[in-house]
Write a protein that binds this DNA or RNA. Structure first.
Lengths: 356, 356
DNA sequence: CTGTTAGCGCGTTCAA
DNA sequence: TTGAACGCGCTAACAG
């Protein structure tokens, strides 16, 4: 707890018997310095624990920092919109420290779009990068370049391993699926039937995430529930009318099914259908606090939403990057978000504090 | 998306036709400024979105700020310990802005101790104050002085109304009790019995908070559950042996009871007893992530913990105060924490990110 | 009451 | 190769 003296370059200059200019030159190995001066300064530096004053650096160097965020293109109020909100809030706080953020969007179902975004990213010469990674192979191409150029980066939402990322921020998908299973099967009695609303997408990383949730869910079922009948309805999630037909077909055939789950954030599609057709589920679980989902939760049509704090993810990831590049602070490389269990009765407080 | 010009006090001075000194004076309402100058500057400030350069503030400011925190004395890992952790984290971040924090502890069951702490507080001449208020009347005495001296303060955990507090941060106790009711009564069938583990304390504010939780809980029961048999066991929470006897007595008489709840953070006492006596509850609910509670949750003895993010409360309260005194930023006067529902399967991620 | 000014620690230019 | 000097934006002391 003793307060170490804060040495300045002036102190160092005095101690080494040179001028501040020279000290600066050896600190940044810039310009020509004689071997003798260099040695003198380095000796002093080894003795003391010099910690440059970051404020002075920020003030003097008109240095601007750029953080680039590679994320899926979003619509108002969808999942990535909230992530962007969190990034935005961090950006505002960081504004004062000459940190600018820039978004590069990609279409989350197009490899090509992702690659292009990656190329654009590199042309921007960012000081740090936040990536919502989508395709493994293509991501590795990007991160390789970033590593070569010593540009720190973090992953958000989905993790890609062995890339040298500074940090991953997101949720444990398997476990969240497991929990969903436990809660949906709370009233489990031997002869219940359930239906999974599965999305049909290409093989991208987000799909992998949903796959993990599904695996966690099935794990719970196989651990704890025997003789369960599990139905599946595939939804495209793009054309509601088409999906409506699929749902109608299903419920005509299986009117007795009263429990269901979706592993993506579009449970509202199912909810909407159920509402329109006055079908009452005893358990309907979905992900994420999209306004449509929230509304259905409040109406009692959806019974549980699993939240993963997209805003906080964006906020933390951005702050962590800034800490790294502006203040040279390091942090732990992994941060799992809480798996928030949200019901009708506590939704209000989650929506209110969404931008934490 | 247009890059706003970064205005400096020099710009403002020019625009307002005064000097930088005057601008500084109105920004920090320091020193004497004529009404006319003040008005001119304020007009400019309203037009532009002035964001001071934090680097410059950090570099130039020799001013030290002091935030005093009046909170209950704590033991490692109890509720207030986590609050203090959050404060500490904020303190570290604020360190760079010359903000120091200081704790003043009181014994949460002693009015006298609370008053003394209040007196000490005022002698410290703080720039801002964080209070975990306990006794209403005594709190009013403290806040009156603070108001006179124009020292901003926030309440945490428990709110005391009509005091001119900048902000209250805490949980909606009634609603959290209501939710507890809903979840405990999830398997509700007409003839179930439940037991409430009630604490016996003096009439302090924390007791009031538990009272509200109880009220919320009873509200749910009276709304949704008829013909319920509700037992009560009073626990002192200080001498385990004594409480053990009370519990033993109760369970000897009512071995059929399998659901219970405690409205304070000491459900671990009950859990410990149940574990020792191999009594298995189908539902046991408590508050807060104390390590003992977490352990029992993981073992499956406690089935649900309600979390209220003590760390975040401390963190936010401290940051908000600093925002006020250092950066003159104001914020909304009320912040409800989410009511986190924590079960065996998601506890891990809450413990890990406790210091958010 | 108000304007001026000297730093804060560092980066950078410009003479020497 | 080096030192001196200026400026980044803001605070606070000081002189008027």
């Amino acid at each position: 707890m003793m307060k170490e003296k804060q040495y300045t370059i002036k102190d160092i200059a005095n101690m080494a018997g040179v001028s501040t200019g020279t000290v600066d030159r050896v600190l940044h190995n810039r310009g020509e310095v004689s071997e003798t001066s260099k040695k003198k300064v380095q000796e002093v530096l080894e003795e003391i624990h010099y910690r440059p004053n970051m404020f002075a650096i920020g003030l003097a160097g008109k240095k601007k920092y750029l953080i680039c965020c590679l994320i899926p293109k979003y619509q108002p109020n969808d999942y990535w919109y909230f992530v962007a909100q969190g990034i935005q809030q961090a950006a505002e706080e960081l504004n004062a420290f000459n940190v600018k953020t820039e978004y590069i969007y990609y279409n989350h179902s197009s490899v090509e779009s992702y690659c292009n975004a990656g190329k654009v990213l590199l042309t921007r010469k960012p000081d740090a990068v936040l990536i919502a990674p989508n395709f493994r192979k293509e991501t590795l191409q990007i991160t390789q370049v970033l590593n070569e150029q010593q540009i720190p980066f973090t992953f958000i939402d989905v993790n890609i391993e062995d890339t040298g990322a500074m940090m991953y921020i997101g949720q444990d998908s398997f476990q969240s699926g497991y929990i969903a299973g436990k809660i949906l099967m709370n009233d489990y009695t031997r002869d219940k039937e359930i239906v999974l609303f599965i999305s049909e997408y290409d093989q991208n990383s987000f799909e992998v995430q949903m796959q993990r949730r599904l695996e966690g869910f099935m794990k719970y079922l196989s651990d704890k529930c025997d003789h369960l009948i599990i139905h599946e309805v595939k939804l495209k999630g793009e054309n509601y009318n088409e999906d409506k037909q699929a749902l109608a077909r299903f419920f005509k055939e299986h009117p007795q099914v009263k429990m269901g789950i979706s592993f993506n954030s579009r449970i509202y599609q199912v909810g909407k259908f159920l509402e329109e057709n006055k079908i009452r589920f005893s358990g309907l679980i979905g992900y994420d606090l999209l306004p449509q989902n929230v509304e259905l939760l409040e109406k009692g049509i959806v019974t549980l939403l699993i939240g993963q704090r997209p805003g906080l993810q964006g906020y933390c990831a951005t702050k962590v990057l800034a800490d790294k590049i502006v203040f040279k602070r390091d942090i732990s490389p992994m941060k799992y978000m809480p798996i928030d269990l949200i019901i009708k009765e506590n939704i209000k407080y989650y929506v209110e504090s969404y931008n934490l």
